[in-house]
């Protein structure tokens, strides 16, 4: 046990956790609202979309790939599912089925192109982003949907406890989906052999093939999974803002990349944890929320996010440098 703790203290996650604890502690002292339950629920709901996407992107990045098309995928899934819901009474199962399966199909297109084109994932997904997005805007003519079914707008929540005054302790659709996405991703990566194959593939693609892992299938699975989570995230976002706009999601890809990267995943593949991604997301979310609560103009929140990203990537670069030196010394001595 002692060994495990010692190992953890040397990880990127541990340092992130320290920063977050210090930040949250200070915020709790200086702004009473920060530690309130309502604030927590608000922050979690507002970041659910980015969070669910980051869980999917983490899996892609661990294989050494990247996906920039998921926001377009989400827009298509969202638009289609809720347009159908506006005309037919398909209910929650129906819209989930539509948006997830659309997400998977579009994700698989990426996976197939990745397996056949043999060019960088960045280029493939920029191309598919343009195709998906262009087709969506052409078909919809860029029109928003403002009236959604009432049952959808109402959402749903799990009520844990209602106190005497009638105030309830409940978690909403967004938070449930967010936790579910991270839980499923964690199970996939750490408790299934496929997840371990994904790590192995990201760490050494040639060796993965030599050991006999089916890397073509792994690529399909990873991009398909990303698509499925994009489908879920799209509904989460539509429910939160109570409307659907084909142009609202595209352009947020790099925010998701930032969360995953701050969480310690390397774009070279092979590394990255669910825990790290959660912490990376939390760091950005708490920072933005905290500064607003402290009365800092919200116009400056993006700048601060930028500084955090720079600090995180510089810290990681230093760590890699140090580690590299250690290994070299270890080999020669």
């Amino acid at each position: 046990m002692h060994e495990v703790i010692k190992r953890f203290t040397r990880t990127h996650e541990f340092r992130l956790l320290l920063v977050i604890i210090v930040m949250a502690g200070l915020l709790a002292v200086f702004t009473p609202e920060f530690a309130s339950l309502q604030n927590l629920v608000d922050v979690l709901s507002a970041n659910a979309f980015i969070g669910i996407m980051s869980a999917g992107l983490l899996v892609v990045i661990i294989t050494g790939g990247i996906d920039l098309s998921f926001a377009a995928t989400a827009s298509i899934a969202q638009y289609t599912a809720l347009t159908v819901a506006n005309h037919f009474g398909i209910g929650w199962t129906g819209i989930f089925a539509i948006s997830i399966s659309l997400g998977v199909v579009l994700g698989l297109i990426n996976g197939v192109l990745m397996n056949t084109l043999r060019t960088s994932a960045l280029i493939v997904t920029i191309a598919t982003l343009n195709v998906f997005y262009g087709v969506l805007l052409t078909v919809t003519r860029g029109a928003d949907i403002f009236s959604l079914p009432d049952w959808f707008n109402a959402g749903f929540e799990l009520v844990f406890h209602t106190d005497a005054q009638g105030a309830s302790l409940a978690i909403n659709f967004q938070i449930i989906a967010l936790f579910a996405a991270f839980l499923v991703t964690w199970l996939l990566l750490n408790r299934s052999n496929i997840g371990r194959q994904i790590y192995a593939f990201g760490g050494n693609p040639d060796a993965a093939q030599r050991v006999g892992f089916n890397v073509v299938r792994l690529n399909l699975l990873v991009y398909g999974y990303m698509g499925a989570l994009a489908g879920v995230a799209s509904l989460v976002q539509a429910q939160l803002v109570q409307s659907v706009s084909p142009t609202a999601l595209v352009g947020r890809e790099l925010d998701v990349v930032a969360a995953v990267v701050i969480g310690g995943a390397s774009l070279n593949g092979g590394s990255g944890t669910v825990m790290g991604t959660i912490l990376g997301l939390a760091l950005i979310a708490i920072l933005q929320n905290g500064l607003i609560l402290l009365g800092v103009s919200s116009y400056w929140s993006l700048f601060n996010t930028g500084l955090v990203i720079i600090a995180a990537v510089v810290m990681m670069a230093m760590e890699t440098k140090k580690r590299h030196k250690l290994v070299v010394q270890g080999v020669t001595s």
Partner: peptide, 11 residues
């Protein structure tokens, strides 16, 4: 690096 500066500069 440029993701960071992009965010900071736009900020």
């Amino acid at each position: 690096a440029t993701l960071g500066t992009m965010t900071a500069v736009k900020g």
